[in-house]
């Protein structure tokens, strides 16, 4: 049986690991992403997602260099995203050690590129990042361009669309839940899980280990967090042990020996 994955997300702005709150990035967590990577290695996280949230397109080259440095220490799958809109840059990131490409705005603005990348590198290489934002009435909309532009499609319809364009996996985030410590937008996670047969990675809002469990119960194949994993010693070990104790099948490596209580 395929295990449920625990994913650590590193959000990079201008080469530094930053905290993300509702898609705003102010606090620097690590000056060097390699330090974060080394900790996650020791704690046996199952997968790493490295995202470039720099505001300028010119950040591409420095991000590719960060991918290369992190991948040297990353012996679990590494997914990378941000400012990927052409095949040459996609290939450069893969050559530098990335295993998967996380694409968001490209699905809306450069669909031909997405299809070409999926054909060339395989669906397993294409992770569709879907960000959801709720309006005042609480209706969930798909947001692209780092949360700034809303699409007409519902999250479920957009999930089907990205699948048709060649996505092999979905990385879900919510602008409202990001950094808000209230757990995932479970309703949207469920809507996407029910709409497509792709594995869904839930992200955005984790503050207690029980939030991870709720993501799995909503149908996610993998649960991701950023801030909490950086600020808690042995974080991913504790999280994995919590999930194992709750009956979730997780990778045996990285479970600590003593049972832990839910944080928060």
């Amino acid at each position: 049986m395929v295990k449920k994955r625990l994913v650590a997300v590193l959000i990079l702005r201008d080469g530094q690991v930053v905290q993300s709150i509702k898609f705003k990035h102010t606090n620097v967590i690590h000056a060097d992403p390699v330090h974060a990577m080394e900790a996650f290695n020791k704690w046996s996280v199952d997968e790493i997602v490295l995202l470039n949230v720099s505001r300028e397109e010119e950040s591409r080259a420095a991000f590719a260099e960060a991918v290369e440095r992190v991948s040297k220490h990353c012996f679990v799958p590494l997914a990378v995203g941000g400012w990927i809109t052409e095949v040459d840059y996609a290939r450069e990131l893969l050559t530098k050690g990335a295993d998967k490409l996380v694409l968001n705005t490209a699905f809306a603005d450069h669909p031909a590129f997405v299809e070409a990348a999926s054909k060339r590198f395989g669906k397993q290489c294409i992770v569709a990042s879907i960000d959801v934002k709720r309006d005042d009435a609480g209706v969930a909309h798909v947001a692209v361009d780092r949360g700034r532009r809303l699409l007409e499609e519902t999250p479920a319809a957009w999930a089907q669309q990205v699948r048709a364009l060649g996505a092999g996996e979905i990385f879900f985030n919510s602008v409202d839940h990001d950094g808000a410590r209230k757990g995932y937008d479970l309703e949207s996670v469920k809507a996407i899980v029910e709409a497509v047969d792709l594995p869904v990675i839930a992200f955005g809002g984790v503050f207690t280990w029980s939030h991870l469990l709720a993501g799995i119960k909503a149908g996610a194949e993998a649960v991701a967090a950023a801030n909490i994993f950086h600020y808690t010693e042995q974080a991913t070990r504790k999280a994995k042990t919590f999930l194992a104790n709750a009956g979730v099948p997780v990778r045996s490596e990285g479970q600590s020996l003593a049972p832990v209580r839910a944080a928060g």
Binding site: G168, D197, P199, A222
Partner: peptide
């Protein structure tokens, strides 16, 4: 059953 078989397995 999801194909590709992707993820951690024993």
């Amino acid at each position: 059953l999801k194909v590709p078989h992707m993820g951690w397995n024993a």
